[in-house]
């Protein structure tokens, strides 16, 4: 059982390293079913159902502390790394429960990548090594490293800026460049889904724009789920939007989920309307 997914991964990379076929591989479909998460006895989110179709961009919005990051981390099994954490419900990647018996967390994280709020390149590695680090960590062979590095950096919109100094330490890049390097690093292992937790919150407008373009470009190859506090960003990049809200002392729940146009122009719930227009505590 555990061996079969590994073989899949090798096929993925074979496709990747032959080049052009990548554009046809498409993203994976992700489905959350009654996802509930706890830290200790404290229930953070309850009964979250969400369908993230293959190749779509889904944005998650909601006030601070309503459990957006927590939800995102249940989607690739990062949540369970916190000692007191617990979860219930199911998360299905292409129909298969990632929490099912016999599924390995490391493999699930390989397929469902994550970009964090704070850029976190490996400080002891060079720019080039950072891009390939995921392959090395997962033990995936890579035949043409130079080509792989260039392609991933290109996809993340960073190639032109760093192509002459791939050997320089990653820490020497600016915050926005570091974040794009992290995106390139995540793309190198060709994930089926990419989760992004406020990837632009520490960045200037032009870096933000670059990353939004990147998201649009990669969405044909990888399903994207992005948490953001920037309404315009959600409206610009996403196909679907979910609005999370936690009442005082209550776990966070989905108030409304649907096509981004509908959520922003004609929301069903007055609370969604209030939040989008900044009339919210």
């Amino acid at each position: 059982m555990t061996d079969i997914p590994m073989a899949d991964v090798r096929i993925d990379t074979a496709v990747l390293s032959t080049g052009p076929k990548i554009s046809t591989s498409g993203g994976g479909s992700l489905r959350a079913d009654g996802v509930t998460a706890w830290f200790g006895k404290h229930c953070i989110i309850a009964g979250v159902d969400m369908d993230m179709p293959a190749g779509s961009v889904t944005s998650i919005i909601g006030p601070s502390g309503c459990g957006k990051s927590t939800f995102l981390r249940t989607l690739n099994r990062m949540h369970e790394l916190v000692p007191s954490a617990a979860m219930a419900g199911e998360v299905r990647l292409d129909g298969v429960d990632i929490y099912g018996a016999g599924s390995r967390p490391a493999l699930m994280r390989l397929r469902i990548g994550m970009v964090f709020q704070k850029p976190n390149p490996f400080p002891t590695m060079s720019i080039g090594e950072n891009v390939l680090s995921g392959l090395k960590l997962a033990g995936i062979p890579c035949r043409d490293k130079a080509e792989m590095t260039e392609r991933c950096l290109n996809k993340a919109g960073l190639w032109a800026e760093v192509k002459d100094r791939l050997g320089a330490p990653a820490g020497a890049l600016s915050g926005g460049q570091q974040q794009r390097l992290c995106i390139a690093r995540s793309l190198a292992v060709s994930p089926r889904v990419l989760l992004m937790d406020e990837p632009c919150s520490a960045l200037d407008p032009s870096s933000t724009k670059r990353i939004e373009e990147t998201i649009r470009e990669i969405s044909s190859q990888v399903t994207v789920v992005i948490v953001t506090h920037n309404m315009q960003q959600a409206a610009r990049v996403s196909d679907y939007t979910a609005f999370f809200l936690a009442d005082k002392g209550e776990p966070g729940r989905i108030v409304e989920f649907g096509p981004t146009g509908e959520i922003f122009n004609a929301p069903n719930d007055p609370r969604t309307e209030d939040y989008i227009h900044g009339r919210f505590g």
Binding site: L81, A106, F122, S133, A138, R185, V189
Partner: peptide, 9 residues
């Protein structure tokens, strides 16, 4: 966390 999120052990 980055290392783990990349599928590292």
């Amino acid at each position: 966390e980055a290392a783990l999120a990349l599928g590292g052990s």
